[in-house]
Design a protein around this nucleic acid. Structure first.
Lengths: 345, 345
DNA sequence: TTTAGCACTCTTTCTGTTTGAGTGCTAACT
DNA sequence: AGTTAGCACTCAAACAGAAAGAGTGCTAAA
């Protein structure tokens, strides 16, 4: 659908104005924001056509126009200037996560906080997928005569731990056997390699030690699966309460949706396939709880392969032009940091 | 301040009714809920006196009465029946955290979820304090030629990790020296023993290895401090949005307050000194953001010593009679579980 | 001490009115 | 053709009574 240059200018101005003020914008108000020398009547005619095309709508007959989802879409795809990141914002981001090295989850939490403060949106991100990660180290630390904490560390820096209880005293001899098994069967294995068949054949080979080692070994398997699972890190939910439109049960439902995590995980891993930054506006989102919201997602790469995503969730009336570069910059930065810290050598 | 038996009955009935309905309760409505044979006029007179005493108030002249903070206080201290926990609720709690063994933080998260679902309140808890915990184990796992992940485990099951970067290659010989230092100076030490003087004298004794080991050793110190710090675990914030009275900027401010953590930490560690369960109503709370809320806190003990707290935050109009036993039961259960898992032997 | 009765107050709801913003249309103008 | 001025029209928001209803406080009698 081609729009005349003037229509584009008008549509863009309406959207930018509406994003700024939150009020429906009328023909007169628009005129002053527009450096075009036509009368309000002309603008009115154009706006009427834009409405007919589905880019604008009126809350009621005598009100100004607000953008439809299609309007925003056209704006994001065609009108918006894809700017570089603002220097100030860049500095804020860097200051925020400069000293946040640690495991990936902590880094993402910190990054989420920064982005939430910056965008006044909720921030969601997924921890690096287990894809390509292998088991770097396993430790069993006795915490009681018959309980031990099993700790597993992956090549991507994910650290998981679990307390497990045995039916026998965990004497040095038992631990020694445990470490032998660990060394022989687990260290260096990819996380995905620790699956049911693998565990079964391992169990079978344990022989007489089966009963003593079983709880410890199943704990490892649990941890490996845990580490392979991407987790959703959430931040800045309360920011949403700022925005008009998120109140009462709407706010509650959205919060509950965010808390659940699993749908978010699906959504994030699905999104932004080839694009650098993916924008989903209102009803373009796959979940009804997000029907009034926009989501901006970008992926981060570790060692050049797509490993996770960071996204922001806010009202459809959101400053796409400055937020998109922010999200893109942050994901790139996170990717770089994680790559640097956990690179294979 | 002594109240006649009838006044007590009336005050109690007003409060219970108001908790149930959320509407101001008038003399007539009360009459039917009260098994007393007097007229509404008499009740009216009594209510007028209760108002004068500061236990009840009217939103406006022609409305029914609602309890003041002092009213709730009198109810909680004198009128409420301190029931045992309801059998159904007990089962729900146990079902919820039965398989949540792991580190304390995970357990508290799970427990918080259960309690939040049960009470429709926000739940806050603090992880066990470092008091009495000692360092059980330290590991350095190389994740790059010059980066290593340092992992520290305490006797109370707290696991902390941090990536640190060295200026030298972390060869086996370096690690060996590291473990010698660890064994000699850290293992078995109480978390509080790792302080600045201790670190200084340790640094001085390192001699030629100072520069190679320094980053690793300071990481340990960081982790020890980290582990000694109690952390605030938060859950069920979105529940608050259910309740009338939490909307708009009130809701936002409360959410932000919860997010900040530090004040909560102070509040929880201060509260419930000798009492089993501590109830703070409205303006009794030390922070203005909680002026419209009630907080019910209880402590959990590990090995018989007070180690942390779990509390719920909701509107002042809250079902104290059933929620207090729930909080008490859960904290006891959490204490037992943690004691069992990490007991000294 | 209790109660019936009643005047009074104040919120809530509704109804109608006014105001103002903004539109769409028509007819004139370039 | 496209543009503009003018004007009637629509609708939300703001305001103002009026009526209904809930609940009170007070008084006087039981």
């Amino acid at each position: 659908m081609e729009l005349s240059e003037r229509k584009q200018k008008i549509l863009g101005a309406v959207i930018e104005q509406y994003i700024k003020t939150g009020e429906p914008v009328g023909s007169k108000a628009l005129l002053s924001a527009l450096d075009i020398s036509v009368s309000s009547a002309t603008v009115r005619n154009e706006m009427a056509e834009l409405s007919a095309m589905g880019y604008l709508e009126q809350p009621h007959t005598s009100a100004g126009r607000i953008p439809t989802n299609e309007g925003y879409r056209y704006y994001v795809d065609n009108l918006m200037v894809d700017r570089q990141i603002d220097e100030n914002i860049r500095r804020q981001i860097e200051a925020g996560i400069s000293n946040a090295l640690g495991d990936p989850e902590k880094l993402l939490e910190k990054a989420g906080e920064v982005l939430a403060d910056l965008t006044d949106c909720a921030v969601v991100s997924t921890t690096p997928s287990g894809e390509g990660a292998y088991i770097k180290r396993i430790e069993a630390v006795p915490v009681g005569t018959r309980t031990a904490m099993i700790v597993l560390l992956t090549s991507t820096g994910v650290l998981k731990s679990k307390v497990c209880r045995s039916d026998f005293d965990l004497k040095a001899s038992v631990l020694e056997k445990f470490y032998n098994v660990v060394k022989a069967s687990f260290i260096g294995q990819s996380l995905h390699a620790v699956d049911t068949p693998m565990m079964q054949s391992l169990m079978a080979s344990l022989g007489a030690d089966f009963f003593t080692l079983m709880p410890l070994v199943t704990a490892i398997s649990d941890l490996a699966q845990d580490a392979a699972r991407t987790e959703v890190v959430l931040g800045g939910q309360s920011n949403l309460l700022h925005h008009t439109g998120y109140y009462g049960s709407t706010a509650y439902e959205l919060m509950e949706f965010l808390r659940r995590g699993e749908p978010l995980n699906k959504m994030l891993s699905g999104g932004a396939k080839d694009k650098e930054v993916d924008v989903k506006i209102g009803s373009e989102n796959p979940y009804r709880q997000l029907i009034k919201s926009s989501v901006i997602v970008s992926n981060y790469n570790i060692n050049g392969t797509k490993s996770g995503s960071i996204g922001i969730i806010g009202p459809t009336r959101i400053d796409y032009e400055t937020l998109i570069p922010s999200v893109r910059y942050l994901t790139n930065l996170v990717g770089e940091l994680l790559t640097q810290t956990f690179k294979d050598e």
